[in-house]
């Protein structure tokens, strides 16, 4: 008896399709990096300017060291604002996420409420924090108020979305059983939904606190307060050594936030 042949299955079986895919990848590489070759596809890269940029980068990095920590007061003010923003945004976001999450869970609420909840989630999640921050800066002016509101909206929709998904993935039997005892809707929430959701909800919220610390440094760049605003100001004044000091502070802050968040979430499990 001759040995039967076997070869491992290929990711793409058709040789033609394999060849086509390789051609597309190589083709795009060539076309995109050649300015003006194909409109819409080719990138407008000025290779000359790219070269100049590299030398300017070297100059900037040289001026960054050593970092200048002499303006401690300004640094501390930005840092404090960022932490305040992150804390307040996480707290109020957590609270607002509860009604939003419940409204967006199809297994709990009637269709019109669900659609309203999902639309709110959709609208708030469509726009990046920076865009929301620009709106709030236009409405409330520069400063941390705009930043806090931005992060509250972002946290609310982030935690709310997670909560809604978790509630929808709940085993329906537990809800059914509590309903069958004659319990009203609010009792159903505190007896069946809340105990099953609480650990995940707290975990997501703590993760969001850590994310808010990172995001609070970004929204400052469009003028919504916090250490990001101090950073943007230092760049525009070419105080690169101060910029580096701010960046190092942000790194430390984010690291501490992440460490704290991981520690808490580890204990929640």
């Amino acid at each position: 008896m001759t040995a039967q042949q076997w070869r491992p299955p290929r990711f793409i079986e058709s040789p033609f399709a394999r060849f086509a895919l390789t051609s597309v990848v190589v083709g795009y590489l060539v076309v995109s990096l050649t300015p003006g070759l194909v409109p819409l596809v080719s990138l407008e890269i000025d290779w000359g300017r790219t070269g100049e940029g590299l030398s300017r980068a070297a100059d900037m990095f040289a001026r960054m060291v050593p970092p200048d920590f002499s303006r401690l007061e300004l640094l501390y003010k930005g840092l404090r604002e960022s932490v305040q923003m992150a804390l307040a945004a996480s707290f109020f976001g957590m609270l607002l996420a509860i009604p939003l999450g419940l409204m967006s869970a199809r297994n709990l609420v009637p269709l019109p409420v669900y659609l309203l909840g999902r639309s709110l989630l959709g609208v708030t999640r469509t726009f990046h924090e920076v865009i929301i921050a620009i709106f709030f800066v236009k409405i409330f002016g520069f400063g941390p108020l705009a930043g806090v509101l931005t992060l509250i909206v972002a946290s609310m929709s982030f935690i709310g979305k997670m909560l809604a998904e978790d509630i929808e993935n709940m085993p329906p039997g537990q809800l059914e059983a509590i309903k069958a005892t004659g319990a009203s809707f609010p009792k159903l929430l505190v007896y069946a939904v809340q105990p099953q959701m609480l650990p995940r909800y707290l975990g997501v919220s703590i993760y969001r606190l850590d994310a808010n610390i990172r995001h609070s440094t970004v929204v400052g760049i469009v003028g919504a307060g916090g250490i990001g605003q101090v950073l943007a100001a230092s760049f525009s004044r070419y105080d690169y050594d101060f910029s580096l000091a701010i960046l190092l502070t942000i790194v430390t802050l984010v690291f501490v936030g992440e460490f704290f968040s991981n520690w808490v979430r580890g204990r929640l499990r």
């Binding site: 537990q174 059983a177 007896y191």
Partner: peptide, 25 residues
């Protein structure tokens, strides 16, 4: 009173809380 194939207890609650849930009404 209803009894289910998959028991349908609230998993994270204690035996006593689950038993007492019969009085929720």
């Amino acid at each position: 009173g209803m009894i289910f194939q998959e028991y349908n207890l609230v998993e994270r609650l204690t035996v006593m809380e689950n038993t007492l849930s019969g009085r929720l009404g």
